[in-house]
Design a binder for these strands. Sequence first.
DNA 1: TTGCGTGCAAAGGTTTTGCATGGCA
DNA 2: TGCCATGCAAAACCTTTGCACGCAA
Lengths: 142, 142
Amino acid sequence: MQKSYNTKSKDLIMKFVEKHSDKAFTAADIIRFLDEQNFSVNTTTVYRNIEKLTKTGTLIKRKSTGNESCEYQLATVDTCQEHIHMQCTSCSKIFHLECDFMKDIAHHLYNHHNFSLDCIDSMLKGLCKKCSIKNKKTTHCK
Amino acid sequence: MQKSYNTKSKDLIMKFVEKHSDKAFTAADIIRFLDEQNFSVNTTTVYRNIEKLTKTGTLIKRKSTGNESCEYQLATVDTCQEHIHMQCTSCSKIFHLECDFMKDIAHHLYNHHNFSLDCIDSMLKGLCKKCSIKNKKTTHCK
DNA sequence: TTGCGTGCAAAGGTTTTGCATGGCA
DNA sequence: TGCCATGCAAAACCTTTGCACGCAA
């Protein structure tokens, strides 16, 4: 394991990440936050810190749908590799599918479709309760 | 509906798309293919054709995981909005979860997690049968 | 002839890299 | 003092946009 120093950049970025433990965020979100804290940090520094956090498993990195930039998510629990996540397309909030049904899904995919699920890379999209009430969209499956 | 002309670019791009009806591909893949056909087309043209195909519903557009560029997939069946897809992280092949269990998933998410699934944006990742035999990875759920 | 399709150049946004300097321990 | 962390500049990528011209119907 490599040595590492404590710096204010690192602290503030972790503060942001922990504050948004239930949401997906982008590098730009972090930069905006640091700016609001009147702490000037170079973009490169933010990317390098994110990269490190991703490598150590603290963050999970994903491309978002559409043309947007990469999204990151705090790996809140150790079991994040064992369940898939649902992300609200409206508020970006992330929900962990931590229930018995999760096993049923993995088993079904494996037994009936010969598919070995990779939970980290998978992502279900849709609308969470709050947002579906707001948006009243009917284009989603029920 | 807007008028449209037949051009060689359009033809070749469609040829590529149909040839890869079971896979995800990027704009770069198309450009490479056109190049192999010794047909010189500008990048812009490719993107504009892809955009049109996406708008008409022929293609489904998605950001891929990691740092890669956008991925496209031929909407082979009309029901692609009603089932989620599984993509092999090794061979990029796409599988349609067209079975009764699909409904169970949507219902479960809606009834137990208040989540309205959006099938187009969702994507399950993992290894298909062929690739899991090749790779012998054990890090995936079963 | 009409107006969609294309090429070219340029720009925009995100992310990465090299190099010299700063600063934690 | 050693070595990780940072800033700055530049580049790499992917994708989009504006404008003028080409070409299908």
